[in-house]
């Protein structure tokens, strides 16, 4: 038997370096090339433009809104899982996996039906007399957040469930015996233990938001533009690759910063309960 397993790793390592790290390095290099030579022109032009600046802010805002809404809906589902029996737990996992594994375009299509003028939301509001005439939530920020929340929800539920299924019931029983009510147990026992899962989920949700080109284009419409569409427009319509590279680097940086911040928080022992 060979002493080291390193030779087996070489093909994938080479693949990763040659076809992943190198293109990203080239992308970063490309972003500094401008008509006036090498420099920060593209970045200055991108950030100097008021429209682009708004797009950047809106994208960050969309990411934040998606993170908050998925957390608000995901935590109750995770708690429902925690308080359920074996069969109900299996059902919850199954119900989470179906939407997660269903194509993104299919889920986006479902939201076109839901948000449209002839969709269930509009019809219900009209039937109840809450709206005078049919309305559409397509091309609105609210509609987009509703859709993004549903699409990214499994990404936050699954890490939470993974943690909760490893926590022994004795932890909360001990708190209960000591006289803590359910809310107190939630705040002092369950939530601190769920925090690493939340951090992992937030990274996944943010990464997904920054790549959900189709959902943003279709539901957001022409009025709500986000960074992924901006990159695609520079490549597909304007053929300005260096500019597209600069925007992509901004996107990479924002994800990278979030990733580092989350990793630092999750290593902070006093903030995170060790599950």
């Amino acid at each position: 038997m060979k002493a080291s397993g390193f030779p087996y790793v070489i093909p994938m390592l080479l693949l990763s370096v040659a076809f992943f790290a190198t293109p990203l390095a080239v992308l970063i290099g490309f972003s500094f090339i401008g008509p006036e030579g090498v420099g920060f022109h593209n970045y200055a032009r991108f950030l100097g433009d008021a429209f682009n600046y708004r797009v950047l802010i809106n994208t960050a805002k969309l990411g934040l809104q998606t993170i908050v809404s998925t957390t608000l809906l995901g935590v109750p589902i995770a708690l429902l899982y925690w308080h359920s029996g074996k069969t109900a737990r299996q059902v919850i996992i199954f119900l989470t996996l179906i939407p997660m594994l269903t194509s993104n375009v299919v889920r986006t299509f479902a939201w076109i039906v839901i948000l449209g003028r002839q969709g269930p939301i509009s019809e219900t509001f009209v039937a109840l007399g809450l709206a005078e005439r049919p309305f559409t939530l397509m091309s609105t920020e609210l509609g987009l957040v509703m859709a993004m929340c549903q699409i990214d929800l499994p990404l936050i539920i699954l890490p939470l469930i993974a943690i909760l299924s490893r926590i022994p019931v004795t932890y909360t029983e001990a708190a209960q015996v000591s006289g803590a009510g359910p809310w107190r147990i939630l705040v002092t026992v369950l939530l601190p233990m769920m925090l690493p899962g939340l951090l992992a989920g937030w990274i996944l949700v943010f990464a997904s938001t920054s790549a959900s080109f189709v959902t943003q284009a279709v539901i957001g419409g022409a009025r709500n533009i986000y960074v992924p569409q901006l990159i695609y427009r520079e490549v597909g319509t304007l053929f300005d690759w260096p500019m597209a590279s600069a925007i992509a680097v901004v996107l990479l940086l924002s994800t990278g910063i979030l990733l580092v911040a989350m990793t630092m928080i999750s290593r902070h022992r006093r903030l995170v309960g060790h599950a």
Binding site: F20, L24, A207, L251
Partner: peptide, 8 residues
């Protein structure tokens, strides 16, 4: 972000 990778 895979979008950045696609472009790269």
């Amino acid at each position: 972000p895979s979008l950045a990778y696609g472009l790269a």
